[in-house]
Write a protein that binds this DNA or RNA. Structure first.
Length: 334
DNA sequence: TATCCACAGGAAGCACTGGCCG
DNA sequence: CGGCCAGTGCTTCCTGTGGATA
């Protein structure tokens, strides 16, 4: 049934990046100066999740690395490295310059200096989930490093630019913004067809069923691939010769919650607790939520900190916050 | 309409942690 | 070892906002 499990993993970068020709070509042309040893303008990829932003950025950087001999590259996920220090540290790590970075010998922004003075080798940097970066002025500082090219990735463009001050905003006007829309159903089918060809035995699933998978995924390729993977495993496990519509329907909610779970796994204990309270209630007022949180948490944090947690949850589409002031209600995302 | 107050989110500063150095 | 110091998570203090109430 499954001949190559790798192609069913969401991280797999397909040889042909399908149905993103316009975006691929555009980003490719933005990055083109690098092939001549020049820096490229920063690029901002934005759009909903599961539409290939990270995938395509990595795909194109890989291509660059094949074409350009002398090219440094680093991928940073700003959810994980959200402080200025950690992001800078990761960037130095990418060019092997962290060995002698010690706390005491690093007064303010020695890290940045070091990055600036590293060498002239072009350095391409992907900053994923850049909206999670606390100190956005780091982007301004990075922009001023001559040999460094930034590829920024964000779910929502508005939120990002609201957080960036004018100084940086004016710089980023020559930033190339590339919007990624959701996949159409036919596009998802085409993507799935490729994965099926590479990864599954023949006649396991027909186009009509793939259309069902695509419809259930609602434009999100990660969900589509997740459904396919789970369905294939299930069919294999039950020794059924093909993936039926029933299996697909059964595995759709499973695949969706699997992806949601991946986000939840990245939360801290307190954040997860808050998320669970909101899920249980469906919708809840800030007051009730905080009471309930204090009753359950071993070491409850202050309201202010809880608000920080909640905005993080909201940002990650796990919850929704309605209303701005007194009448605010938190509810789960459907 | 005026007043009240729950709430959001910025700013500053505090406490803790863990390397480093004399 | 003890003092020092940067990074980080957190609290404290604060201002502005808008729905609720008299």
């Amino acid at each position: 049934m499954i001949t190559d499990a790798r192609v069913l993993q969401p991280e797999f970068i397909p040889r042909e990046v399908q149905h993103r020709d316009a975006e691929v070509n555009y980003l490719s042309s933005v990055l083109n100066p690098i092939t001549e040893g020049q820096r490229a303008d920063p690029a901002l990829l934005h759009g909903p999740s599961g539409v290939g932003k990270t995938c395509i950025a990595q795909f194109l950087v890989e291509q660059l690395r094949e074409a350009v001999v002398d090219l440094n590259y680093q991928y940073v996920n700003c959810w994980e490295d959200h402080s200025r220090f950690k992001t800078l540290y990761r960037l130095l790590d990418g060019i092997g310059r962290t060995v002698d970075v010690h706390r005491q010998s690093t007064p303010k922004d020695v890290l940045l200096e070091r990055l600036r003075n590293a060498d002239e080798t072009p350095y391409v940097v992907i900053l994923d989930e850049v909206d999670q970066l606390e100190d956005k002025s780091l982007l301004y500082d990075l922009y001023r490093i001559p040999h460094l090219t930034m590829i920024l990735i964000s779910n929502d463009e508005e939120g990002l630019f609201a957080a960036i001050d004018d100084r940086l905003n004016s710089r980023l006007t020559d930033c190339e913004r590339i919007r990624f829309r959701s996949y159409h159903e036919e596009e998802l089918v085409a993507i799935l067809t490729d994965r099926v060809r590479w990864g599954l035995a023949e006649d396991v699933i027909d186009t009509r069923r793939l259309e069902l998978v695509a419809a259930n995924a609602a434009g999100d390729a990660r969900v589509a691939i997740g459904i396919l993977r789970r369905a294939a495993r299930k069919a294999k496990h039950e020794s059924v010769a093909e993936i039926t519509a029933d299996i697909i329907q059964e595995e759709t909610p499973e695949a969706k919650s699997e992806i949601k779970q991946k986000t939840i796994d990245r939360l801290t204990t307190d954040q997860e607790l808050l998320y669970n309270i909101i899920s249980e209630h469906g919708k809840i007022t800030p007051q009730k939520l905080y009471e309930s949180y204090c009753a359950t948490a071993g070491d409850p944090k202050t309201k202010r900190m809880v608000r920080n947690y909640l905005s993080k949850l909201e940002h990650y589409n796990l919850i929704r916050a309605e209303g701005n002031t007194k009448a605010r209600i938190y509810r789960t995302r459907v």
